[in-house]
Design a binder for these strands. Structure first.
Length: 872
RNA sequence: GCCGGAAUGGCGGAAUUGGUAGACGCAGCGGACUCAAAAUCCGCCGACUAAUCAUCGUAAGGGUUCGAGUCCCUUUUCCGGCACCA
């Protein structure tokens, strides 16, 4: 039956007043005014309804929205509105990740304090977000640069400091020797400072760390239970945490008469008898000691210190090493083993030293070949007992021990156990679990961030700022000049009294990594107005976030830090949960075409795709491209992420002004599924606009006098079509495949248009389904038409449409007919036909007769309701 | 370099668990309306072919299966992350 509840006879009268032309600007202004006026998106805790906390990653206020933001928030809004229509109490908040480097860069460029730049940007971007019509509860807005917010960063830091979960040690940073300042990785270009061009050096400085390693085991094991996260992200986190089980042991040596151990960790203790050298990092104490009397080695270590701390760059540089001249004693054989310095050994992993087994490790093999070190095979691997050059992957495989004395004949597991036991007996080592995950260094030698609440006292050491003195407020009127942190030059900030002894002391001038701000903001949205606590009971109601949406680029750091913070807050009795995000959707990038033009002087100029005219051949294939302004030939350089440097960005604002927010939203949803990259297309936007105009025109003409009533068979077929599409669309929404939901809306309109403006019950029902299906994607036009056609006062309050099983009933089913696995045609059969009937029907058909052509039928495969395959 | 993804017509994409490859849209081509244009509407639209049939066709190569875009192995290219961009 047709859903009569939504059929409303007054619709025809209302319709007479409706404009023929779709004018998105006025429609959207009115709808947004209605939502604002009625507080449609303000929510409070409601134990009677299931809650749904839908969160998109908050933006950095960089100046204006980019298409990636629009995409992110449109996806979140579709989910928000969809769940709302299904009866959930839905929270969708918004805020600003407002501390960070770009504000300092802008400040330097424009001589304006980062605070002013940031607040101006927030004001503009807020207005942009509002013009997109997102169902956001704006009463919960927060900015991480406000003292009311970052006070709680500081408060939590102090708690962790007292617990030992925050602590001080040295860390390595990129140092610009000209500007005398620490550089972020992105400020290092080809190993040089971005402003000075000076070769960057590594420098060790004291910093504060958060002991995320204390939660490594839990962060790893909990991944298994996180069904709502993409496998891909969980796998990346698992590899990042990097649990490896092996043996940690020491090579004894003597230094100035003192007995010491060179500690290493290995997952291949079974190869220990194949050790022919040890390699240590350039920063390793042993290397530094050896360099004292060895100028060549000192020069090599200096060379290793050149360049940035960026691991990707270090991993790609040529493997180099130099002998220290020192030796250590093999703990089991007693042989002397030479110690080398290797630029590929990372001080930050394990003990900053590795044992070298060139026969069974590719990196060690290369190193030994290059420097003429001994290669001693000790494993019988699938390619034999020897390891002739070149390196083969088989050399690294597990096998039984050979040339290993008492361990000969043992397999991997037995050998590792035996070696570990022997090392333990000698007091030199044991089995050990090693993590790749390092503690989180949160100190930044920068101004525009949350001050680290520590006071340095000559007598009392590092003293946390007392709770009553929080927040340590960041002055908002400074302008950095690129030569270090302005806070460190501001006595009024750093001069203070020691809270413990009352004597003059110096305030810490480092600020916190902005990832600290973003690791708990989602909990604060529940209670942003609470000035007395970090979070309260409202956070217990709303947390965890049911659906989190953001870029895949955050798969590891932000998401891992947030998982860590949730546990820290749990252990501080602030939250009841361990996992902050139940379901995670990682959206793809937004891409656009790239065009450039090389000038006569050889300068490459990137041309915005909007300024390019493409010539096509008769089949629509592009053959040439020209700059619209002067006809100059431009080169099509494929597609890439929208960026300033490649000048291929599309401004959301221009789009909204030209077509309206609904068109922008529709195109973004329609163009590709949320998790895949989205390729921008101006023609595609035109097509989306055309579709909304058609929806409008259909509604405006709906039930127009004089339309003939279609034949009953057409009505029935149309209703079948619409309900089939609806069923599919609801399924697609469940798996977050919104692009096909948009397609479904198009299919429904196509079907309705075939009814030629008839105001039949079937058409009215179809239209009400169309508007409800579309309302999460294009809420403004649906809001307007829903009211205008008299379906109700507010489409937000309408229930999600359900497919009617009766409409999906069919008397006949169309089967695909294959012969020998090749599709040959279709066959209609009664719904009731059983297997035998289908076989008889198929074998008797002319279609099958033609292709079987006298061959023996070996068997018949039947997929119920779908397919018949005659195997010959 | 290491870790994680992706690849389907001229283009974006669809194909529920292995079951009619190309839904829906864009571009293109043809037509209607118009003095004309825009807008709108109708039709065609993977390759090969005059057209039909047939054949081929989901990055490349191999395999499993009655049947593979989908599963397995190898390779190529592109994208994300690599701890101070956010």
């Amino acid at each position: 039956m047709v859903d009569s509840a939504i059929i409303f006879s007054s619709a025809l009268i209302l319709r007479a007043f409706m404009q023929e032309r779709y004018t998105p600007q006025s429609v959207e202004r009115d709808a947004q005014g209605y939502w604002d006026g009625s507080g449609s998106f303000r929510v409070t805790e409601d134990p009677a309804r299931p809650k749904y906390y839908c969160l998109s990653m908050f933006p950095y206020p960089s100046g204006k929205l980019h298409m990636g933001h629009v995409r992110n928030y449109t996806i979140g809004d579709v989910l928000t509105r969809f769940y709302r229509m299904r009866g959930y109490n839905v929270l969708q908040p918004m805020g600003w990740d407002a501390f960070g480097l770009p504000a300092e860069n802008a400040a330097m460029a424009n001589k304006v304090p980062p605070a002013k730049w940031t607040y101006d940007n927030i004001a503009y971007m807020r207005s942009q977000l509002k013009s997109l019509g997102f169902a956001i509860d704006w009463t919960r807005e927060l900015a991480t640069c406000s003292p009311q917010y970052y006070k709680w960063n500081q408060w939590l830091f102090v708690r962790l400091f007292k617990k030992g979960l925050a602590y001080k040690k040295t860390g390595v940073v990129n140092w610009d020797p000209v500007d005398q300042t620490v550089l972020a990785n992105e400020q290092v270009i080809d190993g040089r400072g971005w402003r000075t061009g000076a070769v960057v050096e590594k420098r060790e400085i004291p910093m504060y760390f958060l002991r995320i390693s204390a939660y490594a085991e839990e962060l790893l094991s909990a991944l298994d239970g996180m069904g709502g996260w993409p496998e891909q992200v969980k796998l990346m986190q698992k590899n990042w945490i990097g649990k490896s089980e092996g043996v940690r042991f020491g090579f004894p040596y003597e230094l100035a008469g003192e007995k010491k151990l060179l500690n290493v960790f290995t997952t291949r203790a079974d190869t220990i008898m194949g050790v022919t050298f040890c390699a240590v990092a350039a920063e390793h104490p042993l290397a530094l000691h050896a360099a004292k009397g060895n100028p060549k080695l000192a020069a090599f270590i200096e060379e290793c210190r050149q360049g940035a701390v960026i691991e990707a760059e270090m991993a790609q540089q040529e493997k180099k090493g130099m002998a220290t001249g020192l030796t250590v004693t093999h703990p089991l054989s007693g042989e002397q083993v030479p110690v080398w310095v290797g630029n590929y050994v990372l001080m930050s992993y394990g003990d900053g030293a590795v044992m070298g087994v060139p026969a069974h490790d590719e990196r060690d093999y290369e190193f030994a070949q290059k420097y003429g070190l001994a290669i001693r095979p000790v494993i019988r691997h699938p390619a034999g007992d020897t390891v002739p050059a070149p390196w083969k992957p088989e050399y690294a495989e597990y096998g039984t021990c050979i040339n290993s004395g008492k361990y000969d004949g043992l397999d991997f597991k037995a050998a590792v156990s035996a070696v570990a036991a022997d090392l333990k007996a000698k007091g030199l080592g044991d089995k050990h679990v090693q993590w790749r995950l390092r503690d989180w260094g949160i100190s930044r030698q920068r101004y525009w961030g949350c001050p680290v609440p520590i006071i340095h006292c000559k007598d009392c050491g590092d003293v946390p700022v007392p709770e009553k003195d929080l927040p340590v407020v960041l002055p908002e009127d400074l302008v950095p000049d690129g030569t270090g942190n302005p806070l460190a030059k501001l006595p009024s900030f750093y001069e203070c009294m020691c809270p413990s002894c009352g004597k003059p002391a110096r305030r810490e001038t480092d600020t916190m990594d902005t990832f600290v701000d973003s690791s708990w903001y989602f909990s604060r949205y529940a209670c942003p107005d609470n000035s007395g606590a970090m979070v309260d009971d409202r956070a217990r109601y709303w947390m965890p976030v049911d659906q989190y949406i953001g870029g895949i680029e955050h798969a590891i750091l932000h998401l891992l830090y947030s998982r860590f913070f949730a546990r820290v807050m749990r252990d501080e009795s602030l939250l009841d949960i361990s996992e902050p995000f139940t379901n995670l959707l990682t959206q793809g990038m937004v891409l656009a075409e790239l065009y450039y033009h090389d000038s006569a002087e050889g300068r490459r100029e990137w041309i915005n795709p909007a300024d390019v005219t493409v010539e096509r051949d008769a089949k629509g294939r592009p053959v040439a491209a020209k700059r619209a302004s002067d006809g100059a030939a431009v080169v099509a350089a494929g597609i890439g992420t929208m960026s300033k440097s490649k000048n291929n960005g599309v401004d959301p604002q221009a789009l909204i002004e030209k077509y309206g927010a609904d068109t922008a939203r529709f195109f973004i949803i329609f163009a590709s599924p949320p998790t895949q990259s989205l390729e921008w297309s101006d023609e595609g936007v035109e097509g989306s606009f055309r579709f909304l105009k058609r929806v409008w025109a259909y509604a405006a003409n709906f039930g127009r006098a004089g339309a003939a009533r279609p034949a009953p068979a057409l009505l029935k077929a149309t209703r079948f079509e619409i309900h089939t599409v609806l069923k599919q669309a609801t399924y697609d929404l469940g798996k977050h495949q919104f692009n096909t939901v948009a397609s479904a809306a198009m299919k429904i309109l196509n079907a309705l248009e075939k009814l030629q403006d008839s105001a039949s019950d079937e058409a009215r029902e179809g239209l009400s389904i169309l508007l409800r299906l579309l309302s999460p994607i294009t809420p403004h036009i649906c809001h307007h038409l829903w009211r205008e056609l008299g379906f109700g006062a507010d489409v937000l309050a309408a229930p999600w449409p359900e497919p009617d099983p009766a409409a999906l009933e069919q008397d006949e089913i169309e089967y695909v007919v294959q012969v020998g696995g090749k599709t040959r045609g279709n066959l209609r059969a009664p719904k009731s036909a059983d297997r035998a009937a289908l076989e008889a029907l198929a074998t008797a058909s002319a279609l099958v007769q033609k292709y079987v052509a006298g061959q023996a039928i070996r068997k018949i495969v039947i997929v119920p309701g779908r397919l018949i395959n005659i195997v010959v």
